[in-house]
Structure formats: C-alpha cells, structure tokens
Nucleic acid binder design. Structure first.
Length: 467
RNA sequence: GGCCCGUUCGUCUAUCGGUUAGGACAUCUGGUUUUCAACCAGGCAAGAGGGGUUCGACUCCCCUACGGGCUGCCA
C-alpha cells in the first residue's frame, strides 16, 4: 500500500472565497475523499497587512456551504512563524541559504542598471551570496536561498507534464524577511511538509513557483510532493475572472440560490471531465476524479450551464433535504422565515415546482402561490375547506381535480386571490376564467390553476378573449 | 524584455495516428401545451495559421499569432 493521500486548500484571507479558489478546494477535496485520504485547510495569513479575520471567516463559511469538509482544525500559517524562522536558520547553517544585507534601494538600483544595460532578465544577484561572515555589517538582513546558477529544475507535474525551468532564471528568493517573518515561498513548503501533504493541487499561477519551492525541499532533504497545477477559471469573455464578470465570490452564488450540489457538479466539470458525463453526484465525482482528466487550458464560466446543472440537482433532491436547503437559503438571503403553515404547504407542494426551478430563488418564486397567505374568508374553517391548494396538495397522489364541485370551490378562491393581487374585479374575472377552464376536455389540474394565480398576463388574456 | 503554460462547435468538453470529429449547455425550427416551464423531434455549429514527421494527423515536432501566468522583504 502506498501512503495515505493528504491534500490541502491554502487560501490567503484577503477577501471572499473566490469561485476559482473554491474549485481548487473542490479538486483537492475530491482527490483526497475519493482515495480515503485527508483534506486539510490552512489559512495563509502571513501577510498581516492584508489579513482580516472577516475574510478568513468568509472562506470558512464558503467552504462549509459548498460542503467541502476538511479534516482537523484549520491551520493558521501565521502561528507557525517560529517554525518557519527555525527552518530558515537551519538552511543558513547548512549553507543552502545566506544572509543578505542589500537594501531595497540597492536592489531597485541593481534592476534599473540591468534594464538600462538592456539585460534580458533582471534576476537580482546579491553581493552577499558568497560573502564571508566576518564582513557582515551590523544591519538588518534577509535570508535568501542559495539557488543553483546552472542546470535546470524539472517539475514533474501531473497536469502540465514535465516542465523544465532553467536555473539561471530563478533568483535567490527571500525566505525570511528582515523583520524575521517568513515569506510565502518558505511558509508553504514548511507547512506542507509539516502537515504531511502528499499532493499539492493548486492554480497553475504557481507552476513557476514550484521550481523555487523545490529548492527548499531539496535544501531540507524533504520529499517533494506530487504537483498538480490546474488551469485557472476565466470569465465568459475569456479574460481573467474579475469583479466585472459579476459573481466571483461563492457567497454570491449562495445568495442567488444555487444549490451547493449543483455548484460542485458544475465546478468540477469545469476543466475536468470523465468522458461525456455531465450530471453526477459528488460521490461519483470522488470515484472518478483523477489527474489525467484535468485539462490544461483555462475554462470559461458559463452561467447558463451552471443553471441547467443546478436545476437538475434541485429536481432530484429529496424533499426533506431540499426543504432544509430552502430554509437556509431563505434566512441567508434575508427572507422572512417560513411559518409552520408555509413550511407544510411548501413541503407538500414541492413536487410540482422542484423540477422546474434552476435556483432556490426561482423555486421560491414559483412557489409563491403556496407561501402567500390565503384570502380572508368569513369563516376560518371554511377557508381551509375551500383552499384548493391545500386540498390538492394533501392529495398529491391525485393532483387533478376530481369533481366539478371541487373545481368550482377552487376557482372561487383562486379568483379571489387574483383579484386581490392584481386589482382585477372578481366578478369580471369569474365568468371568463371559468369558461376558459370548462372549455377544456381535460379537467384542469390544481397546478394549472396555481400557475394562473401567478400570471396576471394570462388572466387578462383569458379575460380579453372571453369578453 | 526573459521564462513557463495553453489554443477542438458561441461555451464546457470527448478523441489518447485511421471516426460521417461524439456529447452537454446555449441557440434555431417543428410538435405538444389555455400561459410559463417541462417534454418530444430535428437543425446550425469546431481542430488558430504555417511548416514538417508519417501510407495516414485534431492527435507527434518546429515556427508564428493570440490568450494566460511568473519574473517582490504579496500570497
């Protein structure tokens, strides 16, 4: 047996959980969960200037909503800073890193000179790389990796293949800042190693970084993890995803009523495929997910397809579960919580709307007839008796009207609703609508009439036609 | 500028040297429908361009174009 798979998602808490980040998390989650491995979460909060607790919380809630559960507690990278510094100093001792006393101004001047001289690249070459400790000044310093100047570094990537980077394009990256804090390049490697991460699945914007990070693994004699650099998601126009493309935070999708299962399905299918399978559960995705199925080109977001997939997921969701999600959606999106009666009606009537809504928002919209309060009738018990929605729903095995009497009763209430909602006179409506319905060979279903309630246009058309 | 990655219908993609280049979403047409939705039938639509390699290239190699990324004491 090979050792257990350990993946991780390591977002930097500088804003909401981005849709692209969510997909990266999803891929890691699928890979680990599909192999009985572990999926860890680490918050890359070493940049204290940009760090906000709110952003970290947003990432947590975003992942929770998507159903991407991680093992153990979320690790704070910042809290590992002492360990990072220790590793930096250990490399110093091993001679694989060195103290650099160059100031920012000196570095900038170095680059400016190179540029002025028409140099093809501006990799900073520190004068302190091979300086004798005796010559060290009493000044702040950073710790830099002593990167190889010749040869090449090979990244064996599961998605991109063998990527070869010339070492002379790699600089002596800073691993420990002058204030003693670690840089990202050091922190990721140390944390991934300490957390036992075996597979690093991340955006391909890190592909070049992998070469730099391998230096640290090598310097410490650690095993290099399996790399898998996945292409980023782009907006519908093919450009890098940004605010102007609309919703980019997963929270936005939750607010718009997209089901998490549909999001997982769509997002996993974006840049990854398993033959012609389009609609599947997360359990299937876990079983199927693997690196060969991942594409190498960035994929564009297609909201229409997202909606379609989400609609399919809503349609197959069990009522109890659907109701739970609907309830959550309602509270999150600022709607009033359902009353006992509304909840009951919704549950019984779900069957007639669940397969025609693409989002929870649309489902609620279509279910308005169930949630709207019934018209006030003199006698309360009579109102309940006359309510065709409740009656029809109670008998959902036979949703079609069975008797003329029932149809008549139903009509009266519906017409009252319509009249109240659209300000159309009750009397003017009753006759034409009744006629329209009676003209059919098939008895109109409760559902048909429910829809009539929600459609003023139809009402007026029927009215006009009959006038 | 340098380095790295990418490029099949509008979109997501299948294909892993030999196919009428398949599917899905979108779109269009027809059917069904008292409306919407749903559903049924059908249509349109693709290998960026140029060179090779090969009996044969979407598939392998090179160049160009375009897109993206990296090139920080950001992550």
């Amino acid at each position: 047996m090979t050792k257990q798979v350990v993946t991780r998602f390591a977002p930097s808490p500088t804003g909401d959980l981005h849709i692209g980040g969510a997909r990266t998390a999803l891929f890691n989650w699928l890979y680990a969960r599909g192999r009985g491995g572990k999926f860890l979460l680490r918050i890359e909060d070493t940049d204290r200037e940009r760090y906000t607790p709110a952003a970290a919380a947003a990432i947590i809630t975003g992942l929770q909503w998507l159903g991407l559960d991680w093992d153990g507690d979320a690790v704070s990278q910042f809290e590992q800073r002492a360990r990072h510094a220790a590793v930096a100093h250990e490399m110093l001792g091993r001679g694989t890193a060195y103290k650099c006393f160059s100031t920012q101004d000196e570095i900038a001047a170095f680059r400016a000179d190179k540029e002025a001289a028409g140099a093809s690249y501006a990799v900073f070459l520190s004068p302190w790389r091979d300086a004798a400790p005796a010559s060290y000044p009493e000044a702040p310093y950073v710790i830099r990796m002593k990167a190889p100047r010749v040869g090449e570094t090979v990244i064996a990537d599961q998605v991109q293949g063998r990527v070869i980077i010339r070492n002379d394009t790699l600089d002596d990256m800073v691993v420990l800042r002058s204030d003693g804090t670690p840089t990202y390049m050091l922190a990721v490697v140390v944390d991934d190693h300490d957390m036992g991460v075996t597979h690093v699945i991340r955006g391909d914007d890190h592909l070049n970084n992998a070469a730099r990070q391998q230096m640290v693994y090598d310097a410490m004699g650690w095993d290099i993890p399996v790399w898998a650099h996945i292409p980023l998601i782009h907006g519908p126009d093919g450009k890098k995803l940004s605010k102007r493309h609309g919703a980019t935070a997963v929270g936005d999708y939750q607010l718009q009523g997209y089901p998490a299962a549909g999001m997982r399905n769509y997002l996993s299918r974006l840049g990854w495929s398993h033959g012609d399978d389009e609609f599947f559960t997360s359990a299937q995705a876990m079983e199927w997910f693997d690196f060969p199925g991942i594409g190498r080109a960035p994929a564009r977001l297609d909201f229409k397809k997202l909606e379609n997939i989400c609609g399919q997921h809503i349609a197959v969701t069990e009522n109890a579960a659907l109701l739970r999600e609907l309830t959550l959606f309602l509270t999150v999106s600022g709607h009033l919580p359902l009353t006992e009666i509304q909840r009951d009606r919704l549950e019984r009537g779900l069957y007639c709307v669940k397969d025609r809504a693409k989002t929870f928002a649309e489902l609620i919209d279509k279910a308005e007839f169930m949630l709207a309060s019934r018209p006030i009738v003199a006698d309360d018990s009579a109102a309940i008796m006359l309510d065709p929605v409740s009656r029809g729903i109670l008998r959902d095995l036979t949703p079609r009207l069975q008797t003329a009497q029932w149809t008549k009763d139903a009509l009266e209430v519906i017409l009252a609703d319509v009249a109240a909602k659209y300000g159309i006179g009750f009397g003017k409506l009753a006759a034409p609508l009744r006629a329209a319905l009676a003209g059919r060979t098939v008895t109109p279903s409760v559902y048909d009439m429910m829809l009539v309630i929600g459609q003023a246009e139809t009402i007026s058309r029927i009215r006009d036609a009959a006038a």
